[in-house]
Amino acid sequence: MSIKNTLSWLGFLLSFTFLLAVAALAQTAILNVSYDVARELYKDVNPAFVAYAKDKLGENVVVNQSHGGSSRQALSVIGGLEADVITMNQSPDIDILVERGGLVDKDWRKKYPHDATPYTTTTVFLVRKGNPKQIKDWSDLVRPGLQVIVPNPKTSGNGRYTYLAAWGYALINEGNEDAARTFVTRLFANVPVLDGGGRGATTTFTQRDVGDALITFENEAISIQKELGADKFDVVYPSLSIDGSAPVAVVDKNVDKKGTRKIAEAYLQFLFSTDGQRIIARHNFRPRDPSVLAEYAERFPAIKTFSVDEKLGGWAEANKKHFADGAIYDQIVVKK
């Protein structure tokens, strides 16, 4: 290619970029920083919200999304990623934005219904078709010789929920912490692989054929069944599990700087609307709106759950007690 040719291409590219930039200026762009497995959900939510914003608010909006391991995403926001809203799967990942740099107002839980959690999910089991090992409840998972796939509680919110669900199950049924500790010790003695995140664990169980049961979020279990075939796996609901509420918040410092508060707040509000709740339900998360939940009732069998706040003294306490370096989780896995 001659130099003249190259230059004209360069000129074309530059003017194209310029045009794009001008086009972008005419609309408000907001960035939703979110966790890994919410990718598909927000891919559906965003166009719906863009249409809603145009109709009801008369605004041209672009919603960009960024996904990754939820703690890592929170770290990026602390590091300067200009998120307008964050949508996570556990509240400590929003609380950290309050503590470090005051990016989010400390009363973020009070700004939306249900402690600012538009949906919940819970921890369930996925087993091989026909349930050959007869796994019906948490107590079956600790049988010697069984292999259970769990993502690493140190690096994954999903793994943390699993650990706390097992702990809570033993605590509530046996009534004391020693029993709960023995129970989680036996459970993690049955774990042959600790993947970094929920999706990794899914791959290990479904593609690598490792393990008798995968413990994961209900939405993940249902979508695995749908995508990889209901003839391969069964979902098992234990007698008791944990309530996994997904919190959302506006990143106050960023929206005030960028002047996007109105849109960011409308975006989160949209998640609680009937339309938003329907999209959420279609992605196998349990919606908060009772009428929407009723519409999709056959997807979500009734299950008894407990929450971290009511039984385990809240996330901050649970993290310190179980997952901090040298805390209970470290003790039980090192002793094995």
């Binding site: 703690s71 770290l75 140190k154 042959p192 692989v193 370096d325």
Partner: peptide
């Protein structure tokens, strides 16, 4: 496999600590 005491590598420990904001 990333099992503690068996198949964890040092960079994983570093990442783990980072993800706990440590």
């Amino acid at each position: 496999g990333n099992l503690p005491m068996v198949s964890e590598i040092t960079p994983l420990i570093i990442i783990t600590k980072l993800e706990q904001y440590d």
